[in-house]
Design a protein around this nucleic acid. Structure first.
Lengths: 318, 318
DNA sequence: CGTATGACG
DNA sequence: CGTCGTACG
């Protein structure tokens, strides 16, 4: 039977505490706003977010670039599933061929699991766990070259498509920028095709920080992978095609909000980071959004998980 | 000026405590023999050993397969030099090209250093540190193929040659047994040539356990690298050519005396080991030997160091 | 800096 | 199991 969520998660305090500048987002009148002033994230997974029309969230999606499934398991990254209890969790950079996926990752109680690995050992790879079995599932983006690299999985649900992607990194010295720009074009078309049928929720490591606000050192990274004009333009083009950066939808001016910190130079402790991970949704799906959150305190990878809270009317069983 | 040793090292207790079955070796009458019964090594570097004719040791040589110079430095293997204060220390498997040797290993106060690295990065390689500058030094064994792999250094001293060697491993499935047997023949000739001129002290990782007593699991290793009949025969041939296994000279029946334990299966804690490291000397040099010791408690590699105590009449400065 | 390979032991 | 190398990020 369909289960309502959001309600039962109600507790005192800390809801919406990540919101520096709530924008198009309505806050519940009784929400506690302490800890709201700084850029600090509160270390809770609780939220009472609602849609613009006041419907409480009842479906949660997590996305996380885990930088190696096996290391992530050892680092207890896995525990995010118990803590967030998401309906769907999408993982990028599993770096693990299918036959080497540990039992604990293959069979997660309560979830169906889907994997797409790269041909190259220990490279790229994505995975999805879903409580609800999708109507159908598709691997890749229908491109011979990109699909060798295990970069996308699409789940068709009743009222939306969910696509998770690990977008090609342009590399040191931008040696693979061409591959990346080729992906951007192909991927946009892919999303547009899906969008003709149903609203799309696309999430993952998009390997770009869109604007200066989206990384700690915009000035010095203009020529570096993840902040070249070409990559930024690719993202702009995506939004212009009728999609929305859900985090900026809720927090248009929030600074110091990142999802990736290089392991080098103690960057995470200093919050010298990049926002590379996104939930991007079809324009018309905005009305179903309740919140878009960055779990910046969650360790286990050089990226942190991000969480999307939505209200869906589709039947859900768990 | 020449400095006498052995004497000044005198302390109470624990001398000769490694000796399970003292054989051709004379014990000092006042030596304490507690801890002598078991196979346990006492954790001391002290000794008052003398030659058959009663001359105290005054020259100490250490040999150690360190399994990676840089890791060994990090594991504080380096501290053996302060603890043993050897006149010469020979290292095998430095796994480090010359240009990558850390400063701390290049310049050891009180020692001259000599390195022979393999062409292949991170493979094999040997090194020698000596307080006394040798009369001359030679790298390799005058063989084009073997000498690409950085496997031997020869130091010419007044009254002996010191050769250190890292003998080729025959490999899993004995894939490089041929290379190994080729080495054995070439190396034996090389030693015999030196032996014509002066007595030879040869030390290092010979990658063979000679007899069943020299490894924990002789039955199951008959077909494995380090205990094949061919490798054992090679060692027998070396001894038949007029050389002596100094450890067996002193301890002909001592069991459970090993110098290598695989990192796998907790082998070292269980003393499931192999005696692969040796001091082999010219027959006529026996009269200069004071002791041949295994420092089985010294950590920092999957091998432990071994120590040779000799009496030399050559002038020594320090 | 850290997760992956693969060679070697 | 652990130390190397290289690729990748």
């Amino acid at each position: 039977m369909a289960k309502k969520r959001g309600n039962d998660a109600a507790k005192s305090g800390n809801s919406s505490s990540e919101k520096g500048e709530p924008a198009s987002k309505k806050l519940k009148s009784n929400s506690v706003q302490e800890k709201t002033s700084s850029t600090e994230a509160s270390e809770t997974f609780h939220s009472e977010a609602v849609t613009n029309s006041g419907e409480k969230w009842n479906f949660k999606i997590v996305s996380w670039n885990i930088n190696g499934l096996r290391a992530w398991l050892q680092n207890d990254g896995h525990s995010i599933i118990a803590k967030e209890d998401p309906d769907v969790i999408c993982l990028q950079e599993t770096k693990c061929s299918k036959d080497k996926i540990p039992e604990a990752a293959l069979n997660v109680p309560g979830y169906k699991s889907y994997f797409m690995s790269a041909e190259k050992e220990g490279y790229a790879g994505v995975a999805v766990y879903s409580k609800v079995a999708p109507l159908s599932i598709a691997y890749g983006v229908s491109d011979g070259e990109h699909d060798k690299e295990g970069r996308a999985i699409t789940l068709k649900f009743e009222d939306f498509y969910l696509v998770t992607a690990y977008v090609p990194n342009s590399g040191r010295g931008l040696v693979t920028l061409d591959k990346r720009l080729n992906w951007d074009a192909i991927f946009l078309k892919y999303l547009q095709e899906l969008d003709k049928e149903k609203p799309v929720i696309m999430c993952g490591d998009l390997n770009v920080s869109h604007h200066e606000i989206d990384l700690a050192n915009p000035k010095t990274n203009r020529k570096n992978a993840g902040f070249t004009q070409e990559e930024r333009d690719g993202f702009t083009k995506l939004l212009e095609a009728g999609f929305v950066d859900s985090f900026r939808h809720f927090y248009p001016k929030k600074e110091n909000a990142y999802t990736f910190w290089t392991y080098m130079r103690n960057a995470r402790a200093k919050n010298v980071g990049w926002r590379l991970d996104y939930f991007v949704v079809s324009e018309r799906f905005k009305e179903s959004l309740c919140d878009s959150l960055i779990r910046s305190w969650v360790m286990g990878s050089d990226h942190c998980p991000i969480t999307l809270l939505i209200h869906t009317k589709m039947a859900r069983s768990s």
